[in-house]
Design a protein around this nucleic acid. Sequence first.
DNA 1: CTAACATATTAACAATTTCTAATATGTGTG
DNA 2: CACACATATTAGAAATTGTTAATATGTTAG
Lengths: 107, 107
Amino acid sequence: MIQKVDMDTKVKFLHGFAHKIRIQILECIKEEEKTVSQIVKDLNGNQSSISQHLACLKGCGLIRGRQEGKYMYYSLRNQQVRDLLSMFDAVLEDVENDVESCENHID
Amino acid sequence: MIQKVDMDTKVKFLHGFAHKIRIQILECIKEEEKTVSQIVKDLNGNQSSISQHLACLKGCGLIRGRQEGKYMYYSLRNQQVRDLLSMFDAVLEDVENDVESCENHID
DNA sequence: CTAACATATTAACAATTTCTAATATGTGTG
DNA sequence: CACACATATTAGAAATTGTTAATATGTTAG
């Protein structure tokens, strides 16, 4: 094997982060598992849409679901995914600062 | 401000990772800056396509370009982006292992 | 069993993204 | 200046992804 991680798996995994609603879902369940309806309410979203994005996130390996009675609880897959989310924020603060300090004021 | 990092900026940033060619470009220049034609050759890709993805990555804040004569050298924006790429691999090894150990062999 | 609720799935359509080919721009060299 | 080369841009077609509304499935309570 030339690369440790299969490229298609990686693309799929990263694709999970590439949509506003999916990022919101991830952040919404970052600290605690939630049911689909809690997520729908929190994001003020549409049930079908959220459900599809949840399926996507699960397929990407970012979250896991646990059924309890008629409720489905979703949570981040593991601590590493949580760390990634935190890292995004850290890197982004930096990016935003850079953008700010790049504003050229040519008088 | 409720959140430190603007959601649209975050979506845009993460979108940068959401395509096979873009990930390949990032990995290709992970350790050293390269010119467009070097990247095109390394990835065995199409000049126009690579150029567009480079523009995308730059717009996402993931890479930076430095012109030298008629060449344009691209490199990762900073060490943090490099760290993110490494972290993806680390998390993914885990994901792949999980998938493996989840294969149920019911005899 | 049936009703009520939670979630998932489907299908058609809309929106977005990507690809390809052609062309444009920019830069150094003779 | 003219040519060669490196890279960027454009535009339209093709492919992918997302949305919406309707419906299906699964679970518990009565």
